[in-house]
């Protein structure tokens, strides 16, 4: 079990913003679907640093992304 980020698509899409995506240290991990205006996490690549949570929660006060527990899927 380990932590990964998970974006709440419904809430995120209301802000038309991609700020957290621009600060994730990992390439091809925190993605943005332009057609629907929301961020989503490629969880197999997420290292669980929570910088995205700092950007969306602490800096922007939007709280649309959180850390969740996951297990390795085979």
């Amino acid at each position: 079990m380990y932590y990964v980020a998970e974006a709440k698509a419904d809430k995120c899409s209301t802000y038309k913003c991609n700020q957290c995506v621009l600060f994730c240290p990992e390439p091809n991990t925190l993605m943005f679907l332009q057609a629907k205006n929301f961020a989503y996490v490629n969880q197999a690549r997420c290292k669980g640093c929570a910088i995205c949570v700092y950007v969306c929660g602490d800096l922007l006060k939007r709280n649309c992304i959180e850390m969740v527990m996951t297990t390795v899927s085979e």
Binding site: E26, P27, N28, F32
Partner: peptide, 22 residues
């Protein structure tokens, strides 16, 4: 446009949250 195209770098072993990695 980050997050909307395939980036040049692949997965790598730098530490979680490393800002050098960023």
């Amino acid at each position: 446009d980050l997050g909307t195209f395939k980036e040049l770098v692949e997965e790598h072993p730098m530490c979680a949250g490393c800002f050098m990695a960023y």
